[in-house]
């Protein structure tokens, strides 16, 4: 039962966080979110017309375990910008309301609330496998 030193999954997650400017760990995909909190966070990012990568934590429970160990944050979604955890759904929603989110993302604040967001171009969903393959 000895724990090995190498932890490829944790390294892949940490690598993706370091590499992607805006990275959302969520349940499901931006096109098909599997949780209301993930859906709301995606809608908020899309309303800001932010380009972001996403990782679906559902296929393997270890992704979520390793992510929470890295981030010291218990819940999903988790939004990282420039390698830093910005927050989960509540914090992103609050920051969108105050305009802080646009500043953090380096975009213009949307004129309309998230619900009225137009379709936007998105980066394709990122899998942990992709992150290591690059």
């Amino acid at each position: 039962m000895s724990e090995t030193e190498a932890n490829p999954l944790r390294e892949a997650i940490a690598g993706a966080i370091a590499e992607k400017e805006v990275l959302l760990f969520m349940k499901g995909t931006p096109e098909a979110p599997m949780c209301g909190f993930s859906a709301r966070t995606v809608a908020t990012l899309e309303a800001h017309e932010a380009t972001f990568f996403s990782v679906d934590v559902l296929p393997d429970p270890r992704i979520r375990e390793e992510l929470s160990a890295i981030s010291n944050w218990p819940t999903i979604p988790q939004l990282f910008v420039k390698g830093e955890l910005v927050g989960g759904c509540d914090i992103i929603t609050e920051m969108a309301d105050t305009g802080e989110l646009a500043t953090v993302l380096g975009v213009k604040a949307p004129a309309q609330p998230a619900a009225k967001a137009p379709e936007t171009v998105q980066a394709p969903p990122l899998t942990i496998g992709d992150a290591t393959a690059e």
Partner: peptide, 25 residues
């Protein structure tokens, strides 16, 4: 904001996602 929420999360450590399914803060 992150650390404010962490203060609350720590109170319910081990219960979030389980006994307390979701907590909006």
């Amino acid at each position: 904001r992150i650390n404010r929420h962490r203060t609350i999360n720590e109170i319910f450590e081990g219960e979030l996602g389980g006994r307390i399914h979701a907590l909006s803060i």
